[in-house]
Design a protein around this nucleic acid. Structure first.
Length: 314
DNA sequence: ACGATTATTGCGTTCTT
DNA sequence: AAGAAAACAATAATCGT
């Protein structure tokens, strides 16, 4: 939460200077190197999310202030079936903001109805619109960055273009697209979390994902424990040093293949638990387990695995 | 809250047909 | 080659401290 507000302030200031410099950036907290992880700028050492939604497709809103910039108009977005270029008939007021009433209002109502009906040229286009709304809904519920949401919308478009939706539900595919994009970007969301917001059966989501994976050959990386550390850390409200230590543990465990066969989120929870324990921060097994949606027994098992590995000797 | 023990589940292997 | 089954590891549930 706190990092999110932080972004909101920083963006307007730094957007111009940093846009595509590609130069090294420093984490404001620990001066570590910052690199891109799936649409988010994340500090390599402490895991702080410096900036998210780095791709800005928006227009230059300052056009009316300084006449130099001429990119105007509504923002074009893949999240609307017509890419945001449609027109809508508003309610209540006329063009000057004065209220309207009576016959005129009812006339506008009829006009709006016909306008809405004429909006979709085909069933497919209507389905697309439905799907994109659903993608937006789930992405918002999961608190995902905009770039992820937009990628998911684009993926949904492709899926429909390839006729993958035939006989399957729209809702399953929207959830599947979101999960697929998260996987491709190393963004830590389990399929369970996505399923929780999908308006369809969980198996349908899995099926949609596997179809997407097969048809498009998605670049889905195997999920890593270290990917889950930043989010869990912020959920648990631990300090910087704890988070950094946990990230180190997770990274080493990932490299050593210690996480193979385990649930990476549960493993990350164990890393956080150990790190917090070392620093004397009171994070109980229960809270750590709950944040990662695993049981305390899993946290314990993974903790023992880490401890017995003993990172010094190899 | 934590640890130990037991039960369940999921999954890759291996054995059959 | 396809399916069934025994085997194993990870996770969850339960009980005791």
């Amino acid at each position: 939460m706190s990092s999110r507000e932080f972004n909101g302030q920083e963006r307007s200031v730094e957007q111009d200077t940093e846009q595509k410099s590609g130069d090294r950036e420093e984490c404001p907290d620990c001066q570590g190197q910052v690199n891109m992880v799936g649409g988010e700028k994340v500090c390599r050492t402490c895991g702080l999310v410096v900036e998210e939604n780095c791709i800005d497709r928006g227009p230059e809103w300052r056009t009316f202030e300084t006449d130099k910039r001429d990119r105007t108009g509504a923002p074009i977005t893949p999240t609307r079936h017509d890419r945001g270029l449609s027109t809508e008939i508003g309610f209540g007021t006329d063009g000057k903001g004065n209220p309207i009433s009576g016959r005129k209002r009812r006339q506008l109502g009829r006009l709006r109805r016909e306008h809405d009906r004429g909006r979709w040229r085909s069933k497919a286009e209507r389905n697309l619109a439905l799907g994109l709304v659903d993608v937006r809904r789930i992405a918002g519920a999961l608190d995902l960055p905009e770039s992820i949401r937009d990628q998911a919308c684009t993926l949904f478009r492709s899926a429909q273009g390839e006729d993958l939706l035939r006989g399957r539900s729209i809702e399953a595919f929207t959830a599947g697209c979101l999960y697929a994009v998260c996987r491709c970007n190393g963004l830590p969301r389990t399929i369970e979390e996505v399923k929780a917001f999908a308006r369809c059966g969980g198996s349908a989501v899995e099926n949609a994902y596997s179809v997407l994976n097969k048809e498009f050959g998605l670049a889905a990386k195997p999920p890593l424990a270290q990917d889950y550390v930043p989010r869990l850390a912020s959920d648990l409200n631990v300090g910087e040093t704890v988070q950094r230590r946990a990230l180190d543990l997770a990274r080493e465990a990932d490299d050593a293949g210690l996480v193979n066969g385990c649930q990476p989120s549960g493993f990350a929870a164990a890393c956080l638990y150990i790190a917090a324990d070392e620093q004397g921060e009171g994070v109980s097994q229960l809270t750590a387990a709950h944040a990662a949606d695993v049981s305390t027994a899993t946290v314990r098992a993974n903790r023992d695995k880490i401890r017995s590995f003993d990172f010094e000797d190899p």
